[in-house]
């Protein structure tokens, strides 16, 4: 899951989001094990404490949990939780930016809606 980090969010948040992405895509299924802090730290070349902080974010939200001596696992119902959370964030993360960009380009609301329609057709 090595990728370049974006500047606009702290790295530990980005780590958490990547794991969520993997859960949504089905790469990490519920009750399956996720990579360890060390594995994440080594593959992304980040401090293990940062990786741990990212995973702890998911632990707090009940998306992953720790099995003593074994490692971290995806909770049952995690896909739902991530979806719910992402839906809440959808407006902030995508719609505001979308509207701003559309205004910059002088796209009308109707034109934007048509584009959204086209996106769905793909």
């Amino acid at each position: 899951m090595t990728r370049e980090f974006a500047d606009d969010k702290p790295i530990f948040v980005q780590i958490a989001e990547r794991i969520e992405d993997c859960i949504l895509s089905g790469a990490f299924t519920e009750e399956s094990q996720i990579p360890s802090t060390t594995e994440i730290a080594v593959s992304d070349k980040i401090n293990p404490a940062t990786a741990l902080k990212g995973i702890n974010l998911l632990v707090e939200e009940g998306i992953v949990y720790k099995r003593r001596g074994l490692g971290m696992f995806v909770s049952t119902g995690a896909v739902r939780k991530v979806k719910d959370k992402r839906k809440e964030q959808f407006y902030d993360r995508y719609i505001i930016g979308l509207a701003e960009e559309a205004k910059k380009l002088s796209l009308t609301k109707e034109e934007v809606m048509a584009l959204v329609e086209r996106g769905y057709q793909r």
Partner: peptide
Amino acid sequence: IEQYSENPRTYIISTHLIEEAANVI
């Protein structure tokens, strides 16, 4: 990072080439 995870200890990295070290420290 691998060594640090397995055997935590204090590393002091002195450098003026920060970019790659930035996420490690």
